[in-house]
Amino acid sequence: MKRLLPTTVFVLLLAGCSSAVTGGTGATPSPGSAASEPPSSSPASSAPATSPAAPGSSCDPVIDGMSPREQVAQLVMVGVDPSDPAAATALVRDEQVGGIFVGGNPTDLLTDNALDRVQEQAKLPVSVAIDDEGGRVQRIDELEGDMPSAREMARTMTPEQVRALAEERGKAMLARGVTVDYAPDVDLTDQSADAAIGDRSFSADPAVAREYALAFATGLQDAGVHPVIKHFPGHGRASGDSHTGLVSTPPLAELRGHDLAPYENIKEYGDVSVMVGHLDVPGLTDGDPASISPAAYKLLRDEYDFKGVTVTDDLGAMKAISDRYPLPEAVLKALQAGADQALWSSGGQVGPVLDRLEQAVASGELPEQQVRGALERVLRVKDACG
């Protein structure tokens, strides 16, 4: 039986998530409409682009009432076992994490109002995310039916039909307690369907991909589900799969004219988040994955004027990151770089991660003002500031 979450649980909750197909959920599509020329300023500065909470913000009383550990806990998105509702409930009760990611094929957490019981243990609304793109990356197909891949949608459907399909799918998600979808994918590629991105991409044409991604994102929002477009700054032409190791994209100058086009005029997408991929971009990230590179977040914030929540791709199950850093350090590096939410789909290690973040705030490694800015963005998406 389906029913909507209680009114104390807010609909627009954000969280980053990662898909079993491309770590931390595959690519994030950008919804459509003609793109304009991006600014040409250089992203050379490595300082993270962070927007501190505005003085007198309505979030201030909520943030001021939280302990340092509760504050950093709101900035993590933790994978949970979809077959074990009791464990997810205990995680939220004990650690008060800001979000959970429901991956895999079991549906126990998505039936019998199990997510209502998870929310009842939270002091603040919990973002509940899945990566339901269609095709190879689906989470509720056993419950709600199969959805075609992005490539198939663009081949056989109009943008309005895609919008209507996403709205119908979003309503089904929301009725089961899901508030965030790590979709659509705005990566551009004409690779074979089973490549790392492959048929998860609407098109290799920036205008087509943007139009269909915008339609999909609009449909989700019309249903009350928060879209997350991915994978910034563009996984479609990367050298491989970041699940298996660090991959490289074409140089930044080349991305500007193609892969980054879906992110232009990003405000047209409405209230969306952006997932940042584990991608080394020559001329931008200096050999680091974009997900932990201050220059990548600065590019998104400053040149593309993005004001919403940024979430990492999967920090725990993708070797582009896990081969380089233990999870607590990877999460810290992502937040230091400018991420608002750090995602790991594998679950576990929540205590050590929060211990490390709490220590970093106390020592100044993770500036308090930066945490506060991220918190305000995350809480506003969850409509948790009153």
Rank of each mutant, 00 (worst) to 15 (best):
S18E: 13
S18A: 15
S19L: 12
S19Q: 13
S19H: 15
S19V: 14
V21H: 15
G23W: 14
G23N: 13
G23V: 11
G24D: 10
G24N: 10
G24L: 05
T28G: 07
T28Q: 13
P29H: 11
S30A: 14
S30V: 15
P31Y: 11
G32H: 06
S33L: 13
A35W: 14
P38M: 04
P38D: 09
P39Q: 09
P39S: 14
S41I: 06
S41F: 08
S42Y: 05
S42N: 09
P43S: 08
A44I: 06
A44V: 11
S45I: 08
S45K: 05
A47G: 07
A47T: 04
P48D: 08
A49R: 04
T50Y: 09
T50K: 12
P52K: 04
A53E: 09
A53L: 07
A53C: 11
P55I: 04
P55C: 05
G56N: 13
G56V: 02
G56H: 01
S58N: 14
S58V: 10
S58E: 10
C59F: 06
C59P: 09
C59G: 05
D60A: 15
D60P: 11
D60I: 14
P61A: 11
V62R: 14
I63A: 05
I63Q: 07
D64E: 12
M66I: 08
M66C: 08
S67H: 01
S67Q: 05
P68I: 07
E70W: 06
V72K: 06
V72F: 03
A73Y: 13
A73N: 12
A73F: 01
Q74A: 01
Q74D: 00
Q74C: 02
L75W: 13
L75Q: 08
L75G: 12
V76L: 04
V76T: 01
M77F: 07
M77S: 14
M77H: 03
M77L: 08
V78M: 04
G79F: 03
G79S: 04
V80F: 07
D81F: 03
D81H: 03
D81G: 10
D81N: 07
P82D: 00
P82V: 02
S83L: 04
D84S: 03
D84P: 04
A86R: 09
A86K: 03
A87C: 03
A87I: 02
A88H: 01
A88W: 00
T89V: 08
A90D: 14
A90G: 05
L91P: 00
L91H: 00
V92R: 01
V92S: 02
R93V: 10
R93M: 03
D94W: 02
D94I: 03
D94V: 05
D94E: 15
E95P: 07
E95R: 13
Q96E: 02
Q96V: 02
V97Y: 09
G98D: 10
G98L: 02
G99F: 00
G99A: 02
F101I: 01
F101C: 02
V102K: 11
V102T: 03
G103R: 10
G103D: 12
N105Y: 10
P106A: 12
P106W: 06
T107H: 05
D108I: 05
D108G: 15
D108C: 15
L109Q: 07
L109H: 06
L110P: 01
T111A: 01
T111N: 09
T111E: 08
